[in-house]
Every structure is written in structure tokens, then in C-alpha cells.
Design a protein around this nucleic acid. Structure first.
Lengths: 175, 175
DNA sequence: CTGATCTCAGTACTACTGACATTA
DNA sequence: CTAATGTCAGTATTACTGAGATCA
């Protein structure tokens, strides 16, 4: 039932709709390579999001909330300021507020005051939050995060190509 | 101003947050290659969606509605049943209803009755819809669909890798 | 009767804008 | 005073569930 979106047993088309659209695009409009790549990213993201969210749903998490928990687990003190979380997770400030609200309602994180800067709010993961993150990580690794069909080399190639795009887009500044 | 999300001049981190998370993951949890690839797809999709939507906003379209218009333009009669649109665009039936509602409100498509099957609704693109699609396509090709940093070979590699994932996920069945 | 097609009501989640209070 | 931080209210978009009407 969780595979509903992952494996569309409904009506799996006997051809690749993206490839067909690219061919028509090439014939009628022009070079279609970029459009094909972008459409592929959009569709694969949708597939992964469905798989990941389905695996996390029994644990009461979404992928966005899961990423927030992982970030906190990886931090030294188990706590980070709201704005730092927004920078790392590339989230809008109001989205950070929203996600932390939901995690806090589930007692997975707490809001604490910053010792020196009274503007900032420190988000601290609770013991329950650490447990939940562990359980969710097992669920995700069990399904390989929904990413199937690639061997280790291909997975690394995919990461390298996408990292190149993010660097060009100014997602981060590296050496 | 449209580059707000594309070029986060706010606080571009001096390191790659995804790569750093992958290193910590490798140290504390285990193999991180798959997680890094999935996180990259999620983030790149977010970047592309922002760029594409910003380019389409002046034309009153979202990427989802734009894809629907392109699909209709490519069809022989300029019209398709709702369910076929859902299959091709991988959309939930209610999402098709939603998107067609908005396109119809803008007079870009019309709803017609099917000649032989009175259950199905035919969606037909209007002349205004064809014009709008042309304008939007120019806007999107001008920004290369937001995809930057890759040469032709790398773009093709990316498409090939993602197509492999979609095939494995049952997105389509090939010969 | 079974199943396909489409619609509607309502929910959930996230992104975003604009405004605001607090504080460095 | 200027800028940073976080919150709130409200809007937009899409995905989804569940129910229902119509029709092959």
C-alpha cells in the first residue's frame, strides 16, 4: 500500500512519457536535452518524496522534519539556533518555525533561550527525538531512501552531477 | 528579484551542507552514498522549481500548468481526456481536475464532452492557450529551465541516470 | 452489478509575503 | 538608528482521502 506511488500499478505506460515529450519537443520546438533533464529531476523527486514520506508516516514524520532531527543529532550539543537550521536545511524562516512547532508538539525537540543572544531561540533535541530519529533511519535505509536501479558508481555520478548544479546555482561557495 | 531563490545571496554557506552531512552520516551511521544522492535530488528540484516558477509567474502559470499546456499542444487534435493527462503527467485525478480548473478559468483550455464515452471529459487547448504556451516556452528556454553548470554531455548523463531510476521504480515499462 | 471517469469537500504540508515585537 | 531574529496571519499550490454522481 505504501508502494502505491512508488509502483504505479494503475497504468504504467508502455513507453517513457518524458522521452516521448522530448522527441516531440526536438521536432517542433528545438533542443530538448535541458528540458528532458529538468523534467526527469522533477519526476524522480516526486517518486522519492512519495517513497520516503510513506516510510516515515508510521513514525509521524515527514522528510523535512526528519532532516531537521538528523541535523540536530549531528550537532555537538544536540541543539542549534533556528536561523542556523534554516541555513543548513535551506528553509525559509517561517518554514523553520512551522517545522519546529510540529516537532515540539510531538515532544521531539524543545525550545530554549540562547545564553548570550536573547533574540535567538535554541532548538534542542530530546531523548524521544533521538529515539525517533533512529527508528526513522532504519525505516529509510530499509528502502534505500526510495532510490533504486543504480549501482554505487552510478549513485556517485548522480551526486557529482547534482552537486555541480548546486554549486553553479550558488547553493554554497566551495574551493 | 526572481533570483532570490536561485542565488541565495542571503547566506551562501562556505561549504556544501549536503556533503558535510554525508561525512557525518558515514562516520556515525553508515554508508551515506544513497542518502547524499537523494538529498541532492531534493535540493536541486527545489532550486529548479523556484527558478522555473519565477520565470512563469509573469505569464500566470506554474510548471504543472505549463506541462499540461505543452501536453495538449503536442496532441494531434489539441485535446485529451482528463485521465490520459493524468497518466502522462503522473498526476492524481483530483490534481488534474484542479489544474484544468485553473487553466479553464484563464480561458487557456476548454472542457468538451467526449463523442463516444460520455463519462470522459475532453480538455481542449484554446488559441489563447497556444499563445500562452509559446510565450512561456521562450521565458523558460531563456533561463535554460534553471539548469546551469552542466555541459551537453553531463546533461545527457543526468537524464540517463534519472531515467534508469524511473524505469526501476515502474514509472513506465519499456520494450 | 462491476468498474471507470470525474467532481467535490476537506485535510495536510510546504513556500512565501508582509507585518510585527524583541534585541544586538 | 540599523540590522538580525523569530513569530504570526494569511495566501497559493499541490497531494491525498473519502464520498458521490454518471455512465460503459
Amino acid at each position: 500500500v505504501a508502494y502505491c506511488a512508488l509502483m504505479p500499478s494503475h497504468h504504467p505506460l508502455p513507453f517513457d512519457p518524458i522521452d516521448r515529450a522530448a522527441q516531440l519537443w526536438q521536432d517542433r520546438i528545438g533542443p530538448a536535452a535541458t528540458m528532458a533533464a529538468v523534467t526527469n529531476i522533477m519526476r524522480v523527486q516526486q517518486i522519492l518524496q512519495s517513497s520516503v514520506d510513506a516510510a516515515l508516516r508510521p513514525h509521524g514524520l515527514t522528510f523535512a522534519r526528519y532532516e531537521a532531527l538528523v541535523l540536530l543529532v549531528f550537532s555537538r550539543q544536540g541543539s542549534l539556533p533556528m536561523n542556523v537550521m534554516g541555513q543548513r536545511l535551506q528553509l525559509h524562516p517561517t518554514s523553520v518555525t512551522n517545522i519546529v512547532d510540529r516537532l515540539q508538539a510531538d515532544h521531539l525537540v524543545e525550545r530554549n533561550s540562547h545564553p548570550s543572544d536573547r533574540r535567538t531561540t535554541l532548538v534542542t533535541i530530546t531523548e524521544a527525538g533521538r529515539q525517533r530519529q533512529k527508528m526513522a533511519t532504519v525505516a529509510l535505509t530499509d528502502i534505500d531512501f526510495g532510490l533504486i536501479g543504480l549501482d554505487d558508481t552510478q549513485t556517485a555520478q548522480l551526486t557529482a552531477l547534482l552537486t555541480r548544479v548546486r554549486r553553479a546555482a550558488g547553493d554554497f561557495t566551495d574551493p
